[in-house]
Design a binder for these strands. Structure first.
Length: 579
RNA sequence: GCGCCCGUAGCUCAGUCGAAUAGAGCGUUGGCCUCCGGAGCCAAAGGUCACAGGUUUGAGUCCUGUCGGGCGCGCCA
């Protein structure tokens, strides 16, 4: 509707020949106040200066050029400083029911994406332990955003980047092996920098079950001449690095690989399963270790964007807008995380996506400039990459703030959260706030079965409608949309529902353009609210003798149910028939 | 110190690339069940949009500064 009006006004402006060279940036907006009609156009105010006319005079000229026989427009008024207010006909609003019932799941989809390809990379947590509640927000946001962009006509590819190479994974492998040695009966001083969680024991136990003591070494041999850990007055980094090297020596390539791979496989499978249970699925899981070539770095070197200093290889990122230069290869010969990230982004670019979206935790915001710098240095347009930052979520149980610490393996996992509040509530709560906003996640509220809980409030609207259609089948009444006389939907309650239904496509488009799925959660709450108000309003019983009105109200309800289902599906929440 | 994000009702937050009288939920107070699911509905109270300037016909929204909160500033990931 909005787009349609925009076309009408654009045409009218051309007819009015107000200014030759204007590239018109006027807007059609929903009004806040019903007295201002349904939509307002600000064209006259925006163009007044260029046209050298007073806004209200200009508005009058524009209106002259609007078609007079347009069936969707009841009347047009000039108001306030020069708004052109458009009042739609009842007919225009009633048409939305037919649109919805015809399009069904496709109602609200748009073609603004025009089939452009978008790659969304999200979560991408290191496979060194289970996902925690912080990852959950990125997962819920990324999945909802992907659905939104799909609904807006983009071709979306979701990907999880698996950091299966590098030091953290080696630390995990050593952690598992040391736990395994403990299971064999060795006494081990477990390093402070190793992974402490119980899941490390589980992986070690599976190795012990399958391989017996084949991987056993004496603790004395393992720790002989290893630099002291931090609790012995040493350095925890040197301690763990030496243990990694020692483990590789003692186990040999094949056995070390066995431990490493087992740890990776078990944890990755756990993450994959966890996300699947959360309703988050990917097109691809991209392995960092598959990026073995050094082409990205070679390109940077060849283009003269790197230099050696203090034994390390540096990327001159400051020449591309970063605060300072960054190391690609450490003095000890190891590639930095940044180096592999550049390779990954080159790979993404080469795969030809029109647009790249990365969803990162807000603590990584300092990282954005350097990745964009690398893209520029590789000759790509940095605008092709959008990095969306997600703030952390703080869990509350009522008023009590829950402490989360990743130290000593005590954290609230995504799985625990899901098991406590359920998938629907978790998905909804995670995205109901703007992503760059801190999120207070109240477990009590998320679990409550009342209107206090927005998830239940919305789902209840869907369920109530399902209930009425169930009740219908137990009466002698039937629903025939063809026999519905929609002009009978004339009460303010029914009108409010129609107006809200007609907004849905605009909400999808806006939410997709701004990458803000939370707008959809607010919309769904609005829709549920106008529905509940209609349903509870005096004299608005649905299952009534009056054929025309009954069919009309049933059609209205079917339309509400369809839109609720469409919207809930996008944010990853179920639309239950019964609750 | 520098950079990024955020300051809107008692609390949690919306506010659509600047528009008309700033909205919702919770909480508080008061109403509504002979009626399709009351897991609901109706109503009231509650605001110097952190503060100060600026741009504009028009600013919660854009710009500058101040104050307050969060995060980041490694040859960690």
């Amino acid at each position: 509707m909005k787009q349609y009006l925009h076309k009408l006004f654009t045409h009218a402006l051309l007819q009015a020949e107000i200014s030759k060279d204007m590239v018109v940036e006027f807007r059609i907006e929903r009004t806040r106040d019903a007295r201002h009609g349904d939509f307002a156009c600000n064209a006259a105010m925006v163009l007044a200066k260029a046209a050298r006319m007073r806004p209200r005079d200009l508005a009058a000229r524009i209106i002259e050029q609007l078609p007079t026989d347009e069936p969707s427009i009841a009347k047009v008024e000039i108001a306030g400083p020069g708004f052109i207010n458009v009042f739609l006909t009842q007919q225009a609003y009633r048409a939305v029911i037919g649109d919805i019932l015809t399009a069904q799941a496709a109602y609200g989809r748009s073609q603004v994406g025009a089939g452009q390809s978008v790659m969304i990379e999200f979560v991408s947590a290191n496979p060194t332990g289970p996902l925690h509640v912080g990852h959950g927000r990125g997962a819920a946001y990324g999945a909802a955003l992907a659905n939104l962009l799909t609904a807006a006509g983009f071709n979306v590819h979701k990907e999880y980047y698996v950091n299966d190479a590098g030091r953290q994974m080696d630390i995990l492998a050593v952690s598992v092996w040391l736990r395994y040695l403990e299971l064999c009966g060795e006494t081990v001083a477990f390093p402070s920098n190793a992974y402490q969680g119980d899941y490390v024991w589980d992986i070690a136990a599976s190795l012990h079950r399958e391989h017996g003591e084949a991987l056993r070494q004496s603790a004395n041999t393992v720790f002989k001449d290893i630099p002291a850990d931090v609790d012995q007055g040493g350095d925890k980094e040197l301690h763990i690095d030496a243990l990694i090297e020692r483990s590789q020596q003692l186990l040999g390539d094949a056995s070390y690989r066995l431990v490493f791979q087992r740890a990776l496989d078990v944890i990755l499978e756990d993450i994959r399963h966890d996300l699947e249970q959360f309703g988050v699925v990917y097109e691809a899981w991209f392995s960092e270790s598959s990026l073995s070539d050094t082409r990205a770095m070679d390109q940077l070197k060849a283009a003269g964007h790197t230099y050696m200093q203090d034994g390390a290889l540096w990327f001159r990122s400051s020449a591309f807008g970063d605060e300072k230069d960054r190391v690609l290869v450490r003095e000890n010969g190891q590639f930095t995380y940044f180096a592999s990230d550049i390779a990954y982004h080159l790979n993404k670019l080469e795969r030809g996506f029109d647009h790249l979206i990365n969803i990162w935790g807000a603590d990584h915001h300092g990282y954005v400039a350097r990745v964009k710098a690398a893209m520029m240095a590789l000759g790509a347009d940095a605008e092709r990459l959008t990095v969306l930052l997600v703030q952390f979520a703080t869990l509350y149980r009522g008023k009590e703030r829950l402490q989360m610490s990743t130290r000593s393996g005590e954290f609230v996992t995504l799985r625990e959260l899901r098991e406590e509040v359920g998938r629907d509530a978790a998905r909804f709560f995670y995205i109901q706030r703007k992503s760059e906003q801190h999120l207070n996640f109240d477990l009590e509220l998320a679990k409550s079965n009342s209107k206090n809980n927005p998830v239940y409030y919305i789902q209840y609207a869907h369920t109530r409608i399902a209930g009425v259609f169930r009740a219908l089948s137990e009466t002698n009444f039937v629903w025939h949309h063809d026999k519905a006389r929609l002009e009978r939907l004339e009460s303010k309650y029914e009108q409010a529902v129609l107006v809200t239904l007609s907004r849905y496509p605009e909400v999808i488009e806006m939410a997709a353009e701004t990458y803000e799925p939370h707008q959809l959660t607010y919309y769904l709450h609005d829709l549920a609210e106008v529905f509940h108000t209609f349903y509870d309003a005096p004299g608005h019983k649905v299952l009534i003798e009056d054929d025309e009105l009954r069919n009309a109200r049933l059609s209205l309800m079917a339309a509400v149910q369809q839109v609720l289902r469409n919207g809930l599906t996008i944010i990853g929440v179920s639309a239950p028939e019964v609750m």
